[in-house]
Computed example of a mutant assay.
Amino acid sequence: MAPRLAAQPWIRSPRYDGWLILAPPFVALLLVLALPVSFCQSAEFPLLAWVGVVLLIDVAHVYGTLFQTYFDPQQRRQRRRLLVLAPLACYAGGVALHAAGALVFWRALAYLAVFHFIRQQYGFLRLYARHEAPRGRWLSTALIYAATLYPLLYWHLSPPRNFNWFVDGDFIQYDWPLGRLLATGLYLGLVLAYLSREAWQYYRTRVLNVPRNLLLGGTALAWYMGIVVFNGDLAFTLLNVVSHGVPYLALVWSRRPTQATGRGWWTGRYGLLLFGGAVVLFAFLEEGLWDGLVWREHGAVFGWFQGLPTVAEPTLLMWLVPLLALPQSTHYVLDGFIWRRQAT
């Protein structure tokens, strides 16, 4: 007996969840498999791919947080203190970290980002398991964390890879082959335990939680293939960013306020255009400032910003870099609050 899709614990609908929340890691993997081998095992990253993946998804999705916070009058009233203090604390902390060293700042931001990425997958898992008995959740919870933490541990216990999270050296690495082997064995044991339990449960009850299993499968595939199997910057970024950014934007859009509430300036006839245009515009402005003031890597895309002075003086960078990174750091912190709710 096939599982009834309509009866599954979807966030919005089978079609919406299927295409925009659950399918992205599988689509990203198909794209990676279609790449020339050189892009799967090297640091090459074509400009067009950078625009499509980094600018239009990775950086753009950060600004989705605005629509659940600063652009929502009700949230501004309810969370006024948080919305004021979070960016101030992020900036102050960023300046302090950068004063201790540029790598200290980027390393702290990288680990905060990793935590955010992992917690997003856990949050989706809780949504898709919200109707299940708490007693049976522990194994799926263990697997969602293992599916993300095992590849990261493998990365930390490997020689330098052809990709990084933000900058070279932002992760602490120590080449330990035995550690990688032990971690792999434990991970495979957990996967087998989960699959065995799911098979037994389905045999007994003929009930299968389709979105939960697709989420776990997509997460495991994206993180394992992007970090452990492939050793290319484009492959890693495609799997990492598409699997994270697209579902995040889809979740934000699914939780948009309605015009009836008086909070829906971006939900009317042209709501999707306004929403998409706003996040892309903010992303373009942010990356343009980064490129004009700091990186100088994508002048062909950000020609308007090339007239800005390049900042290289350490004291100025100490104040500037945390400011440019503020949308990102604030996004990580606020998301720890705005999506925390009692599952129903």
Rank of each mutant, 00 (worst) to 15 (best):
Q74S: 15
A6R: 12
R197Q: 12
V95I: 09
L125M: 12
R341E: 12
V104W: 15
L192D: 08
W265Y: 12
W138I: 11
E287N: 10
N213F: 03
L48T: 13
L239G: 00
L272S: 12
F275Y: 09
S13D: 11
R340Y: 10
Q74V: 14
L208E: 05
N209S: 11
A235H: 03
M225E: 04
L249T: 00
A110W: 02
H131T: 14
D233K: 15
P322H: 00
R15E: 14
D17C: 06
A34P: 05
L181S: 14
R15N: 11
V95A: 06
G264M: 04
A102P: 06
G101F: 04
G217N: 04
I227M: 00
P257Q: 05
P159L: 12
L215D: 02
Y154V: 04
S140Y: 00
L182W: 13
R137I: 09
A43S: 15
R206K: 11
H156R: 14
Y16D: 03
C40L: 13
W223Q: 04
V279S: 00
L143R: 01
V207I: 13
L85E: 12
G303V: 06
T344M: 11
W19E: 06
G288K: 03
V252Y: 02
V207E: 15
R119T: 09
R161W: 05
G262V: 08
L308K: 03
G288I: 00
G93Q: 04
G101M: 05
G94F: 02
A193L: 13
L239A: 03
A86W: 01
Y122R: 12
L186A: 15
L85P: 06
P159M: 10
H116E: 07
I172V: 15
G336T: 10
V27I: 15
L103Q: 10
D233N: 14
P134G: 07
F26Q: 01
V114N: 06
W200N: 13
Y122K: 10
L289A: 09
P257W: 01
V210Y: 01
L324C: 07
N164V: 10
V59S: 01
V95K: 02
G189L: 06
